[in-house]
């Protein structure tokens, strides 16, 4: 084998390995989703969405309360977490770019991502539940928002940093103030990335159980009152999966399937919207 052939062979091997890696990744995706699909679909019933929980032995129970509660908690968390995260990331990547403050906040955010979520739940418990004297939905939302903030903040920072500096200079040259440059030029350039970050963060918190356990608690009854305990899918899954009854396991699988499906649909939809918007 001469040098030329050896190089070509090496390239072939490396590229085949890369292809294998891609297949490896896709394999797990299909495997996991397929498994959840099979378990979930067989347990999926209309009553899951239209009825509130019944105790074991009484058929026809559903998780209407948990679907509603999960939606409320997640939406409120997103409304708190996303603006804070995006604005904070903007500060790091724009106004404070390259400063020590930016580096420090950035490192702190990276660390916050790995704080166990149960600890965040405890933290929020200490500041929003114990002083109030009862569990409440707001506390759950804030706990999820706290998890979201560093994720959104860091992706925003990264994505804004990827927008070429020359683009800003061009806008400055036209006499635009910095905030206009940011909102009209930089954000536009980094929108795809930021949105991905937001979606990833929603996906991250939508599946969280531990921070809700001691904040929004759970509620066996239908309730949209954020001032009191409110149901969530994840806590319900957690409780049902641990119980001894087949019916509960079925509902836990169906709920898992729904959570996964919704999260995946959001992710894919987000992608499609971006593609459509920027084509």
């Amino acid at each position: 084998m001469n040098v030329e052939e050896k190089r070509k062979f090496e390239s072939l091997v490396a590229l085949s390995l890369s292809t294998l890696a891609a297949i490896f990744g896709l394999f797990w995706l299909v495997f996991i989703l397929g498994d959840v699909l099979i378990h979930g679909m067989s347990a999926l019933k209309l009553s899951l969405f239209t009825h509130d929980p019944t105790p074991p032995g009484v058929t026809g129970g559903g998780l209407r309360n948990a679907f509603m509660g999960q939606l409320l908690i997640t939406v409120v968390a997103t409304l708190i977490g996303v603006p804070v995260g995006v604005l904070g990331g903007t500060f790091l990547a724009e106004y404070a770019r390259g400063t020590r403050i930016a580096q420090l906040v950035s490192i702190l955010s990276d660390i916050m991502v790995s704080v166990p979520s149960i600890v965040i739940g405890t933290f929020i418990y200490a500041i929003l539940v114990k002083p109030v004297g009862h569990f409440n939905g707001w506390a759950g939302s804030v706990a999820l928002a706290v998890i979201m903030i560093p994720v959104v903040l860091r992706t925003t920072e990264d994505m804004l940093s990827l927008v070429p500096w020359t683009l800003r200079e061009a806008a400055f040259a036209l006499g635009a103030p910095y905030y206009k440059v940011i909102t009209q030029v930089v954000y536009r350039g980094a929108a795809t990335g930021i949105l991905t970050g937001i979606l990833l963060s929603i996906a991250r918190v939508a599946g969280e159980t531990a921070p809700l356990l001691f904040t929004s608690f759970n509620n066996s009854f239908f309730s949209t009152e954020m001032k009191g305990p409110i149901a969530s899918l994840t806590v319900s899954i957690f409780q049902y999966a641990m119980g001894p009854y087949d019916e509960w396991h079925q509902q836990a699988w169906a709920a898992s399937f729904m959570i996964t499906a919704v999260i995946l649909v959001i992710t894919i939809l987000g992608r499609l919207i971006i593609r459509w918007r920027y084509k």
């Binding site: 009484v58 939905g137 608690f217 509620n219 009854f221 009152e225 001032k227 641990m242």
Partner: peptide, 27 residues
């Protein structure tokens, strides 16, 4: 949504052991 429905009814809240959870919720 959150405020219009707030304070409408009183719920007794209990929490703790997971072992009796099925029977307490049935009761």
């Amino acid at each position: 949504f959150s405020f219009s429905l707030a304070g409408a009814e009183e719920i007794l809240n209990g929490a703790g052991a997971s072992f009796p959870y099925p029977v307490y919720s049935a009761w």
